[in-house]
């Protein structure tokens, strides 16, 4: 596989729900500067935003990498949170383990992972209970 043309790295702060989404905002700006089409930018930034929110809600933060290749964009999310017990269930719309205080902020409706799948062309989840979750998403250009 050819090497990534541009790589972006972010640390997602798990303590602060207010600032969640800042990495996605940066990605959005960078993709715009690279002249990527608005539709692709929207797909990538929404998928990444949901991922970022998930890391803040469930995992106390984590790392996010965005790799831009000639023909696709790859988003890698890594956290050291509790892991996902049942990925099949977690992929169902409406299924969530988020606490009530998160719901009152407008998230935790069980749409995060399904939305990430909806906006990407490929999505792989690797999760180990007690160790963390690694997600790789691809959006074709």
């Amino acid at each position: 596989m050819s090497e990534a043309v541009v790589t972006l790295h972010f640390s997602v702060d798990g303590e602060d729900f207010t600032s969640a989404g800042q990495a996605s905002v940066q990605v959005k700006k960078s993709l715009r500067q690279l002249g990527i089409s608005p539709e692709i930018i929207r797909k990538v930034s929404i998928a990444m935003y949901e991922g970022e929110i998930n890391m803040v809600i469930h995992a106390g933060g984590g790392e996010a990498d965005v790799l831009i290749y000639e023909d696709h964009i790859e988003i890698r999310l890594d956290d050291h949170g509790p892991g996902i017990a049942n990925i099949e269930m977690a992929m169902q719309e409406g299924w969530s383990t988020a606490p009530d205080n998160i719901r009152s902020l407008g998230f935790g409706a069980g749409m995060g992972l399904p939305n990430m799948k909806r906006y990407t062309d490929e999505m792989k989840i690797n999760s180990v209970l007690g160790e963390g979750t690694h997600i790789v998403m691809k959006v074709n250009l």
């Binding site: 207010t18 969640a20 989404g21 996605s24 905002v25 608005p38 929110i53 902020l105 407008g106």
Partner: peptide, 17 residues
């Protein structure tokens, strides 16, 4: 249109253009 007030409301709108 929303009755929710926090920064993520604006971020969400920003992501959606």
């Amino acid at each position: 249109l929303t009755g929710l007030v926090n920064t993520q409301v604006v971020r969400t709108a920003e992501m959606m253009d």
